[in-house]
Design a protein around this nucleic acid. Structure first.
Lengths: 109, 109
DNA sequence: CCGCATCCCGCACGATACTG
DNA sequence: CAGTATCGTGCGGGATGCGG
């Protein structure tokens, strides 16, 4: 049996989606615009530095949009593009798989 | 609007599936039993060390099975469990998303 | 205060060589 | 062939600083 080829697009998508936190960030913003501090508070133990880095990557990839409102205090909101919202189908599948196969190990490392 | 809660099972699954190479490894073994060297050759630039580490993790998680045939030369084959094969739906969704939205950027970093 | 940059440090990761 | 051992390096985590 021949080995399968890994499609370049598939490899590319995991260079982005395979990184830590990325999925959780998308999952949080999936339900609507979120402020930086909202995302930070919703995802346990993510550092500001990582959150900034991942958000920038997602923005560059055309998955996330960044809106700045120059108020005081400064307000920045993040929103998924259509490309990003299309990832909901993927996330739904992961959720379903997790519900089927994973015990509720709340504190796994 | 309230922030969504991140379901513990979803967070748990990300701890495994969010690691580098994991998805590509699953993708390779998805089509049938594979030897260590097959997986290594199919995935570009993965180190033996990482491949061993990820395979062990997947085995511990009940996603991958390891079969040893004590021949000479030694033959070891890896195979997905039902739990692992169920991830095909997720991978199919990612493939579809990639086909829709990604340019064929073969050499993106 | 909020969003983000900078600094330092430890650990995961990468490359290479070696073993049963 | 299927892994181990070893050594460097770069990325991620945590604390702190800083502009607006």
């Amino acid at each position: 049996m021949d080995n399968p080829r890994l499609h370049p697009k598939f490899i590319s998508s995991f260079k982005l989606l395979g990184k830590p936190w990325t999925w959780l960030i998308i999952c949080v913003v999936l339900t609507g615009k979120r402020r930086f501090s909202d995302i930070s508070a919703t995802i346990p133990r993510i550092s500001d530095k990582m959150l900034v880095a991942r958000l920038k990557e997602l923005e560059t990839a055309g998955i996330m949009e960044r809106h700045v409102y120059p108020e005081t205090p400064l307000r920045v909101e993040y929103e998924l593009t259509e490309k990003g919202r299309d990832l909901k189908t993927v996330i739904d599948q992961v959720q379903q798989w997790a519900n089927t196969w994973l015990e509720d190990l709340r504190f796994v490392r």
